[in-house]
Structure formats: C-alpha cells, structure tokens
Simulated scan of single mutants.
Amino acid sequence: MHCAAGFFDNSANMNDSRSPHFGDAERWARLTEKQRACLDLLLERKSSKQIARILGIAKPTVDQRIATARAVLGAADRDEAALRYARLKTVYDPVIHDPARIPLPTRLVPSHFPNGDPAETIALKDGAFITEGPSASQPPFGDLWRPDHSLSKRVMMMAAMLVMAVILILAGLAIGRELTRLISG
C-alpha cells in the first residue's frame, strides 16, 4: 500500500513542472509567446514596471505572466526563472544564422581586349559629367579646374579672379551712383 501511495504521489508530480520527469522540451513548449516576451525582457534585468511599459500592458499582467512562467520552469524566484529560461532558450530557440552578410571575395576576370584595355575607354574625372554630343569629350571649362596646375597657372587664375571681382565691384558702385543721381533728381 505504501508503494502504491508513493506511485500515486509520483504520478501527481508528473504534471508538476518541478518534477525531474518533466522534460526541458515540454517546459519550453508550455511557455507562451507572451510569457517568453516577458522573460526576454527579464533577461535584460528589466523590472516588471519597465516590462509593462515596453510591452504596453499592465504591471499586474507582467507579474502574472512571470509567475506562470516560473511555475512552468519550476523556478523558485524571478532570477532562477531567468536563468532557466536563458538555458532553455539557447537549446530550443537558437539563432539560426547571423544576419551580418560577409561579401564574397572578389576575383579577377580575364580581359577579352587586346593589351587588356578596351578600344573606347571612357576616362572619368572628378566632377566631370559624361554627356552625349560634341561636349562629351571636354568639361564646360576645359581643364580650368584641374587640381594639378602648376604654381604659375594658379597665380594667374587667382589674379584673373581678383581683376573680375574688382570690375564687378566698380560696376556695382557705378550703377549705384547712377541710380542715386536719378532718384535724387
């Protein structure tokens, strides 16, 4: 009779999640998605209040979900529940692949052109736009804006810009003087 009573006690404990006969896979399967969401945030050391704010639910709902998850996991407190959940998560919810993409290494392709250079190679320069028509070979100002000009060319370009600036200022002053004379009578 004593053995029979012990047998019944063990069979009653089979449904209890603290039973050693209750498998990890069954515990994982019994956790709901909502409980897992709370436990995920519990792993990040969030309080019930913070979890409630993040999930947009009431704090008592969070406490109820964590308490139910604790019972499923057979944990005595929140910390033990988090540890057991973390262990189960690594086994039953592993990351399948890393989302980071590693580019394939580049490989050289053999050239089909004589001397390895196509007959009509387009030379691109910084800031130059290739267009159709006669101006396609040269930019609008020729080689004026090239950065590799000699010092004497740079000095001459700066002098020309200074002369243009002086002419524009003098023209503006002359126009202003004439307008003032016309307005004043």
Rank of each mutant, 00 (worst) to 15 (best):
E178W: 10
G176A: 10
F113S: 13
A81K: 00
G185P: 00
R84T: 14
G185W: 00
I54W: 01
V166W: 14
I57Q: 02
R27P: 06
A128V: 07
A12Y: 09
K49G: 03
A75D: 05
P103W: 02
A171E: 11
R101E: 15
R87E: 14
A128Q: 11
Q64T: 04
I130N: 15
D98N: 15
L124H: 12
A100W: 10
A128D: 14
G172V: 06
L162E: 11
R177W: 13
Q64A: 07
E132P: 01
E44G: 04
L42M: 08
L55C: 02
A67G: 13
A52F: 00
I130C: 12
L88F: 02
L55A: 00
M158L: 15
L144I: 08
Q64H: 04
I169Q: 15
M157P: 01
Y85R: 05
E132S: 10
D117W: 08
L168R: 03
S135N: 14
M156R: 09
P20W: 05
A58L: 13
I66T: 08
R36V: 03
G23P: 11
G142F: 13
W145M: 06
S135K: 07
D117G: 07
G133E: 06
E80Y: 02
A29W: 01
G142H: 08
A165T: 07
D117P: 00
I96E: 15
A25D: 15
I96S: 11
A52D: 03
S184P: 01
G133I: 06
P110Q: 03
H149A: 08
V155I: 09
M156H: 07
V163R: 04
S111W: 01
K125T: 15
K59N: 11
F22M: 05
S152V: 14
R107W: 05
P20D: 06
D143N: 12
T32Y: 06
P20S: 12
A71M: 02
S47L: 06
D77E: 07
M156E: 15
E44D: 12
Y85P: 07
R36T: 10
K46E: 06
M161F: 05
A100Y: 12
I54G: 03
R65W: 05
G176R: 11
V72M: 00
P139L: 01
P99Y: 09
N13P: 00
L42R: 07
L170C: 14
A86G: 14
D98L: 05
N115D: 10
E80W: 10
D77S: 02
S150A: 08
N10Q: 09
A123N: 03
M158S: 15
G127R: 02
I175M: 12
L179G: 12
V62N: 00
N10L: 11
K49F: 05
P147T: 04
V95W: 11
I167Q: 01
